[in-house]
Nucleic acid binder design. Sequence first.
DNA 1: AAAAAATGCAACTCAATGGTTGCTCGTTAC
DNA 2: GTAACGAGCAACCATTGAGTTGCATTTTTT
Lengths: 117, 117
Amino acid sequence: MSPRRKSLRPDSRALRGTAPVFAALGDETRLRLIAVLCAGGAMSIAQLTSGTDITRQAVTKHLHVLADAGLVHDVKVGRERLWEFEPTQLEEARRSLELITQQWDHALMKLKLAVER
Amino acid sequence: MSPRRKSLRPDSRALRGTAPVFAALGDETRLRLIAVLCAGGAMSIAQLTSGTDITRQAVTKHLHVLADAGLVHDVKVGRERLWEFEPTQLEEARRSLELITQQWDHALMKLKLAVER
DNA sequence: AAAAAATGCAACTCAATGGTTGCTCGTTAC
DNA sequence: GTAACGAGCAACCATTGAGTTGCATTTTTT
């Protein structure tokens, strides 16, 4: 037991579950929504739709995708529903990218050492 | 001319074109490929396929998606084609996420100030 | 030269996605 | 109370995406 694997394997355990967040970010429209919500605070669907060339329903769908990825959350207030940015998942995603970069740098260093040997 | 807009609008000019990269990252399999390539250096398709439960062709397609997003590049060597991680686009993506976070923090600060006034 | 290895190419299936339209429902406003 | 506004629900369509199978092509290897 305990195979003593010090080297963090590239199996991307830390990356598990990050894909949906990236998938949610992988759409121009949703990226715009995020940016708008990020700078403008809570906004209604109607507000978010104005300024786009797509339907209110389409915006609604995109918002749900973002919500499923944990990037936004909604609050019902009166007859309208306000959507707000939620930073935690995005932080997580950022950390994942950093981790990949680090692993890359690490691999490069190892390679360099091996060459110079 | 020169409209003197000091406030960086939320129109996400800096985010333009980032969506494809995120879309490419938004898949568990591709994320795994990236991780493997990142730690293992250049690898052939056959190598990348072994350890997956999908077909070689599927892996090939994923690699092309990653290549189109500029996340990997390939080199033909002999009868095989080696794929290698390409860090620049990923750096770009990371920067985008940081930018969003910054804008969010900035908006929060503005809100706080407005409340305390 | 022939077998084997590594890959390329093309067609196909099936499910998910982005988008639409039409209608209904709850909540303000007049 | 009745309009008007904001949103929800459902069906539908077209396109993309992930994955497959089958066969052809190129480079080794023997």
